[in-house]
């Protein structure tokens, strides 16, 4: 049972990791906690669902369209709402994302109603591989793990080695200075939001396959992803992914051996304890702000 609990924990942790990655990308450039993250992803999943079942497109086509939609949606929200904020403070921006979350949630439930839907996916969650000792992992879990790790590495390289990635980091450290250095901060922000939205959409496709598709799909994963990101340190990509895995495993072990009832909240207790020791998460450097 121990082996299976850990394996399942890592599998579910991979979905948390994806959501955490999405949050970290935005936080890294603009220090905004994006509460609309989950519902942006949920909307993209609905778009994929519509392409698949209403218009009968193939998987490749549908998912590509949905990811393109996700990118456009992220970029649009940044351009149309966040950038318009006059003299923004961080709290105000958070409230804007909360407002956006409600709008997206409302639009999705208005368009598709509240009945649960089945989300078709080319990889099955029931085809399992034996890992020995009766421990199994499904193909879908493997795909999720692969996607999470691949995206993490890709994003890491992107931020480290590309010009745009470095520009994004510069934007976070000092917007004014970045602008003076010739970085088009507006464009960078749009790009960040688009990228983050795409990562979130990937998470939503994978989550909707084991779950059922409805407008409430992403609320819990978003909170979990948020926790994972905080655990990992909010600005660290590797930290976000590891945070996701740690969260998944801790939850499952707690649920398996201590109490299923408190499984949903144990994560938060662990996080508060860890944060007391390391206030900026496990994998991020702690900056003390200048006065």
């Amino acid at each position: 049972m121990l082996g299976q609990l850990i394996t399942s924990g890592i599998a579910i942790g991979a979905t948390y990791a994806l959501m955490a990655l999405a949050m970290v990308i935005i936080y890294k450039t603009s220090e905004v906690l994006n509460f609309a993250q989950g519902d942006m992803a949920m909307l993209s999943a609905f778009v994929a669902y519509m392409c698949l079942s209403t218009y009968g497109l193939g998987f490749a086509m549908s998912f590509t369209l949905a990811l393109a939609f996700a990118f456009a949606l992220g970029a649009f929200l940044e351009f149309a709402f966040l950038r318009r904020a006059k003299e923004p403070n961080v709290l105000g921006l958070i409230i804007i994302t909360l407002g956006l979350e409600m709008m997206l949630y409302g639009l999705a439930s208005w368009r598709w109603g509240s009945d649960q839907k089945d989300f078709p996916f080319p990889v099955s969650d029931f085809e399992v591989h034996q890992l020995g000792g009766g421990v199994v992992i499904s193909e879908l879990n493997l795909v999720t793990l692969g996607v999470a790790c691949a995206l993490m590495i890709l994003l890491f390289m992107f931020f480290r080695y590309t010009k745009v990635g470095v520009a994004m980091k510069a934007t976070q450290q000092n917007q004014q200075a970045a602008r003076l250095m010739g970085i088009r901060v507006g464009r960078i922000m749009m790009l960040t939001w688009g990228m983050s939205s795409v990562v979130g959409a990937c998470a939503a496709f994978l989550i909707a396959t084991t779950d059922t598709l409805d407008p409430n799909l992403m609320w819990t994963p978003q909170l979990k992803g948020f926790s994972a990101a905080v655990l990992g340190g909010m600005t660290s990509l590797v930290g976000a992914v590891l945070g996701g895995f740690i969260l998944g495993v801790v939850e499952n072990l707690f649920g398996g051996y201590v109490s299923v009832e408190f499984k949903a909240v144990v994560a938060f207790a662990v996080i508060v304890l860890i944060l007391c020791v390391k206030p900026s998460g496990l994998f991020a450097k702690h900056y003390v702000r200048k006065v």
């Binding site: 936080y27 220090e31 906690l33 961080v90 909170l223 948020f226 926790s227 990101a229 905080v230 909010m234 909240v265 994560a267 938060f268 207790a269 996080i271 508060v272 944060l275 206030p279 900026s280 998460g281």
Partner: peptide, 10 residues
Amino acid sequence: GPYLAIATLG
């Protein structure tokens, strides 16, 4: 910031 947000949320 976000660390406090998650602690209070929890």
